[in-house]
Computed example of a mutant assay.
Amino acid sequence: MALPPPASPPAPPRIFAPARRIAARRRMLASQRAADAPRYLIDDMVEDVIERIAFLRLEPRRALIVGDWTGALAATLAARGCAVEQAEPAHGFAEELPFAFEGFELVASLGTLDTVNDLPGALIHLRHALAPGGLLIASFMGAGSLPVLRTAMLAADSDRPAPRVHPQVDVRAGGQLLQRTGFADPVIDSRPLDAAFGSLDRLVADLRAQGLANVLADPGPPLGKAALARARAAFAQAGENGRTVERFEILTLSGWKR
């Protein structure tokens, strides 16, 4: 008797809406045309990747950079003689599908993996893009980010909280993901970046301008006037002297392809 075919693996949960994700990144790119647009998060990630490469004395001849819309990391590597390919989700690059290129000695993914539905699948495709001995460095918003905003949204929704802030990966889960997807010598760390804001509206504007708007498949209903007033009040009460400090936790995963 013929055996039945093996069952297909279950599809990943649909947490994020790909179309909303692309739209958010396109709005970000449009916002970043302004000279005074906030870009402190991507600047921090780029600086960190450059420091890690220098510490490891890595001199890649070919590199793939995903998500660095500033071009700063590509320019730094190109000045050292590295051939660089750049990819951007806003322009149709999909981390959850097999890539059309491979053989890179360095792959850097900046600020995009926190909004993919199939994070293990995306990491597998990134590993396949590496040459043997190649290094992945992936940075994105991790667990512990935006605690004041989360509290403000809970105050806004009162006893009926709605999904408004993205779920996030912590250090332990990041390590498990790298091991599960076949990376050797994984290193996982998280570092805080604090910024002060004069209002909740200023924080939300900064998030949108840096591609961190809500892209959940089920984003919840819009806040009404009363709920928005509660959120603004909770945000202001968390600060002092008219300024509220919000925290961003930048999670970085790195591992080698053997």
Rank of each mutant, 00 (worst) to 15 (best):
A131C: 12
L216C: 02
L154T: 13
I188S: 09
L119W: 01
M153E: 10
R164L: 00
I124P: 01
L216V: 06
R202E: 15
I124F: 04
L223C: 05
A156Q: 06
D189S: 15
L126Y: 01
F183H: 08
G144H: 09
R150F: 00
V116E: 07
T181E: 12
V215E: 03
G111W: 00
A152N: 07
A152F: 05
F140H: 09
P147Q: 12
L200E: 01
V148P: 12
P186G: 13
G220L: 04
F197H: 14
G134H: 06
L130N: 06
M153V: 04
A227K: 11
H125E: 14
H128Y: 01
T115K: 01
P222S: 10
S158P: 03
A196C: 13
F197E: 06
G224A: 11
L223I: 01
D206L: 02
R164Y: 01
G224C: 10
L177I: 04
P120C: 09
L207R: 04
M141K: 02
R150E: 11
V165S: 03
L113W: 02
L223K: 11
A152D: 11
P222T: 04
A184N: 15
L228D: 01
A196Q: 12
L110A: 09
R208H: 15
P147D: 11
V169H: 11
L207F: 10
G220N: 08
G198L: 08
A122G: 13
D185G: 09
V187E: 14
M153C: 12
A155F: 01
L177S: 05
M141Y: 05
P163Y: 00
P120D: 09
V116P: 02
G211T: 02
L130F: 05
P147F: 10
S190A: 15
K225V: 14
G224H: 09
I124T: 14
D114A: 14
G174A: 05
R180F: 09
L135D: 02
V165G: 07
R191T: 15
R208W: 08
R150H: 09
A226Q: 12
T112D: 10
D201P: 07
P192Y: 03
G198T: 13
L110G: 03
D114K: 07
V148L: 07
L154M: 11
A138L: 07
A155H: 10
T151I: 00
L135W: 04
A229E: 09
P192A: 14
V148G: 14
L123M: 13
L212T: 03
A205F: 08
A184H: 13
